[in-house]
């Protein structure tokens, strides 16, 4: 099934409590080389057939306006993925 993958990350300059918690847990379990962790989300939009350019454009719009919160998140990638 062809998909469009949307990747969303918390804005670079904002606190990411989830990432911070994971970073501390990693440090405690001995992974000293990892200095920071940031956690975002990956969203899959499934299509019956390979998405057209205009569908990709549409997905970009959806990603910016609906799937992410522009105040605290950035859309870092919108791309087509074939199986």
């Amino acid at each position: 099934m062809p998909k469009i993958i949307v990747q969303v990350m918390p804005k670079q300059d904002l606190l990411d409590p989830q990432g911070k918690a994971v970073a501390r847990a990693l440090e405690r379990s001995g992974h000293k080389a990892i200095s920071a962790v940031r956690i975002g989300k990956r969203i899959e939009l499934h299509y019956a057939t390979t998405p057209t350019d205009s569908q990709l454009q549409e997905a970009r719009k959806i990603a910016e306006s609906f799937l992410s919160n522009g105040v605290i998140e950035d859309v870092v990638e919108v791309s087509i993925e074939q199986d």
């Binding site: 300059d13 904002l14 606190l15 990411d16 409590p17 911070k20 918690a21 522009g70 105040v71």
Partner: peptide
């Protein structure tokens, strides 16, 4: 859309 604050209640 300025940078707002994000809270961490556990902290």
């Amino acid at each position: 859309r300025p940078a707002v604050q994000v809270g961490d209640p556990f902290a």
